[in-house]
Design a protein around this nucleic acid. Sequence first.
DNA 1: GCCGTTTTCGGCCCGACTGTTTTCAGTCG
Length: 564
Amino acid sequence: MAACYRYLGAEERFRTIAYENAARTMDSLKEDVSVYADNVKHLDQLKGIGESIAEKIIEYLKTGKINTFEQLQKNVPMELLDLMEVNGMGPSTLKTLHEELGIDNRDELVLAIEKGKLSTLKGFGEKKIDNIKRALKLYKESGTRLLLWDALQIGESVLNEVLKIKGVIHAELAGSLRRRKETIGDIDIIITCSLKSRKLIIKNFTSLTQVSRIIAAGDTKASVVLKDHNTQVDIRLVDENEYGSALLYFTGSKEHNIHLRLMAKDKGWKISEYGLFHAKTERKLEGNTEDGMYKALGLPWIPPEMREEKGEIEWAMKHPLPKLVELKDIKGDMQMHSTWSDGAESIETIARHILKYFPQYEYIVITDHSPTERIAHGLKPEEFKKQFAEIDKINKSLGKDFVKKGVEVDILTDGSLDLPDALLKEFEWVTASIHSGFNKDNTVRLLQACEHPSVHCIGHPSGRLIGKREGYTVNWQQLFKKAIATGTAIEINAQPERMDLKDDLVHEAIRKGVMITISTDAHNLNQYVFMKLGVDVARRGWCEKVNVLNTKSWKEVMKFASKK
DNA sequence: GCCGTTTTCGGCCCGACTGTTTTCAGTCG
């Protein structure tokens, strides 16, 4: 409905915003909306949902339809609305195309372009038509967002090039990348430099070898498309004394910024990327640092990972902010695979690699697969016995008890585990995971696994693969409750396409008191660095050190395990 | 259509770049 109203134009612009806000609220609900929909008053309490939208939600749940929406569809070319996603195509352009040329969908638009009909329209010059053509093509090709890990690699490599450009004083990744969102649409870089070096920096940036196309290049900002994945990179050039306000603005999220700007407005100020100003006198009050910007508004500095307008500002006004967990707090990796199952390296190679490159670690847990995972060469009970002996031998040669005996045991469809209880007791750490039956509700299986006396942790709890496979359905409230009652931890699996448990659910889990573990689930030596990604997810879920089990010594991990 | 520690009415973030026109509308972030 928001898209419909957006199409209808300026007259409906505030209604559009209202519907978009309501949609965002609905999207971020942890429970199904029907939980709130017993009456209008209950729904009305949700942010951005008032009486009118509440009634429509209830109407939809009761009848499967919304009358207003049915009416809207008669006045709006519905198939055309998708094209608002195309770069450069907004409501006004689409409206003209529909009203002047009778274009109702994408195919008709392509045809009209081929026939040269667009040039007959007022305001449609040669360049505009060219841009529409190109954007349509690009829209078809891309549409996929980058995984955070991939975006970090690309972002850091471009940042490196930018830092080499003459005249650049500071350059930093901003945007959703700085917030460590799980997928990234484009890469934002903020640059400080002197006024007179701007022109040359823009020129040098837009002619980097990685650039395939320039979208825009002005006096203070530029946008390009990279050859790599068609990734868009935006840079913004500011003065040194605008660094704080610009970084704040360019980091977002958009919703977080709007909230801050409204707070400023209430005080008779305004915020832009240039600073915090008196609205009337235009006198500058702040801008040098992010910290200063927040302080002026009576807030502590809010870490970028929390800036999602999910209650962080309200929280910061009343409580101290959580001291978010950091990579340096991590004392060990809780899940990894060796050549015994589907890993690429022997346990000894892994142990020596980690001791060398991750000196802060006090332990690692080898968690090879159990027998059901045939493709992954799951181990039979007697093989685990042999593995125990090997681990003992390796620890002896290392001179310390560094390698821990663990397993990633399969949760079968009936909720039982595929290793005998007697053997499970002998592991120091048992993570239980689902590897089959993705298309059904798996709550019961997970609850049953939590109840097993030997299970310490649930691995990649939702089973999702970002952009490839939806997670299976889980009643998270029930799972979190059971996890607390049984003393079972829940994993953040740091594989780039898993990041599972995801940030919002991590937040929900720790608020209830669930203990989190972060593990790389590494299958080769290049994957231990994923720990950084797992910590990012934990931070986005507001985790402090105390919420994450593997920030503790092994002795304390065992204390947690013994409470099962 | 939503919202309220000045407000139940009158607001709703703020600025840059492009293209087309010649002062601005549309779009984007």
